[in-house]
Write a protein that binds this DNA or RNA. Structure first.
Length: 420
RNA sequence: GUGGAUGUAGUUCAGCUGGUUAGAACGUCGGAUUGUGGAUCCGAAGGCCGGGGGUUCGAAUCCCCUCAUCCACCCCA
């Protein structure tokens, strides 16, 4: 039996970790600048939270959830998306009663049972953010701009933002009716999938790539938007223009989740394959109430870090260099090994990143190792050094070395090692 | 869930229509330099050729099954 990572999961090995840490630190810093506080919720929740929040007509709930029964006979689900748990937590902790508006972000693993492919994993990591309590178009722009500028800050290029308005509880039902009326006569001509969508959520038919050609004279949401929705949508667009976020209107952008109202958006990258959305989101003015909280509007997004990584690699972005070890301690002989291990410990106490030989290899091999690790200095201790009570300190960049008294080196490290 | 492609040293890959001890590059280890890295040269280690079954005198190579990975559909981040 040879074990391997489960289907759709992967390991981030040590040589890749700095890329992830870089992305995560940019995300945290951007979130701070935009005034979003981090929130951490459990990896699993009561299954009903997603059935109710995400929506039982969605693919996520219908076929993609990791659901199991625990020993207490509770139905538990590994979270497939971040928004319902976040709202649950805000409701549970009465956050909006203490403050009228809350802005939170999360950076956490999500789980969906899907067939893996480029940019789609069963366990993936999402950066998401939510603005709760505000109807203002500015709230929409807060979410969109955090997403967009964070991607930009990371050096992701070839971005485009697509925008649409799905209307509200007042104006969407009539539109939905109009849409079903429109599709009814042509239903037999539509693909199997769309026939299914017709019953589940007719708006999603607009997303279909196969039948696009038949959609020429389909009624459009924009002609049905109520006055408030129209004003809101226009204001979102105006504010985006003010802050110079380019976007295109996409009347077919529907989003797969049931809870969206008004604004829906998506950021896609040219540098990705079929799964080209770096992030997407929208407004969900009814969701707080659906989940048992006091009515409150909200808007947010989710975005996939695996796709950031893919896109960054595909476009060949270079990253800030990894931190190098300050000192590599090379030793020859038993006494030297003991002395070296003491030096290593003392230098570490002083805050230097130190490595020592653990395999007892030849000096040549130790030097090669130091080179491979890109150590700034090598502290060499052999029999000569032991006899004289000193250390040969080699500057690996300058190819120079000098002898320094052991005690002097430990006491006065900065004088000898110019370390960042 | 559907379709296509691919599984050979640690890694990336050769291996033609089946024919002896399965190769290269990079990496690793050692040596040239008995105590000094990245370059160069020399050498070594390292493979149940994804797994199982079948055809054959003979299978990495052909057939079947299976598993896995990748890509795409679907859907989404």
């Amino acid at each position: 039996m040879k074990f391997q990572a489960s289907k759709g999961t992967y390991d981030v090995m040590p040589d890749q970790v700095h890329l992830w840490q870089h992305i995560e630190s940019v995300i945290r810093e951007q979130s701070r600048i935009y005034g979003f506080k981090e929130i951490r919720t459990p990896v699993f929740e009561d299954t009903a939270l997603f059935v109710k929040g995400t929506g039982d007509t969605t693919d996520i709930v219908q076929k993609e959830m990791y659901t199991f029964t625990d020993k207490g006979q509770r139905s538990i689900t590994l979270r497939p998306e971040g928004t319902p748990p976040v709202l649950r937590a805000l409701i549970e902790h009465n956050t909006l009663k203490e403050q009228p508006c809350a802005k939170v972000f999360y950076l956490a693993p999500m789980f969906r049972y899907e067939r893996p492919q480029a940019g789609r994993m069963r366990q993936h990591t999402q950066f998401g953010a939510e603005v709760l309590g505000s109807h203002s178009p500015l709230a929409d722009v807060e979410a969109i701009s955090l997403l967009f500028f964070t991607l930009q800050k990371l050096g992701l290029g070839g971005l485009s933002l697509r925008l649409n308005s799905l209307g509200c509880a007042q104006c969407r039902p009539p539109y939905r009716q109009k849409l079903t009326d429109h599709f009814k006569p042509m239903l037999p001509e539509l693909c199997d999938n769309c026939q299914d969508r017709y019953n589940r959520n007719p708006l999603r038919i607009l997303d279909c790539k196969i039948d696009q050609a038949k959609f020429k004279d389909v009624p459009e949401m924009k002609d049905f938007l109520c006055g408030d929705c129209k004003t809101h949508f226009q204001a979102v667009q105006d504010r985006l223009k003010d802050i110079e976020i380019p976007f295109t209107l996409d009347k077919n952008l529907v989003r797969g989740l049931d809870y969206y109202t008004r604004t829906a958006f998506e950021v896609i990258s040219q540098h990705l394959g079929a799964q080209d959305a770096l992030g997407g989101g929208g407004r969900y003015d009814g969701l707080m109430e659906d989940l048992g909280g006091s009515p409150a509007p909200g808007v947010g997004f989710g975005s996939g870090l695996e796709r950031y990584v893919l896109a960054l690699k595909n476009q060949g972005v270079n990253l800030p260099p990894e931190k190098r070890p300050d000192v590599y301690i090379a030793t020859l002989g038993d006494e030297a090994v003991k002395k070296g291990s003491l030096l290593c410990s003392q230098l570490r106490q002083k805050g230097l990143a130190c490595e020592q030989e653990l395999l007892g290899r030849s000096l040549k091999a130790q030097m090669r190792e130091a080179g491979r690790l890109n150590a700034r200095y090598v502290a060499l201790i052999g029999e000569d050094e032991i006899r004289k009570g000193l250390v040969t300190l080699k500057d690996m960049d300058q190819h120079q070395q000098a002898e320094v008294a052991f005690d002097e080196l430990v006491v006065n490290v900065p004088k000898y090692c110019q370390c960042e």
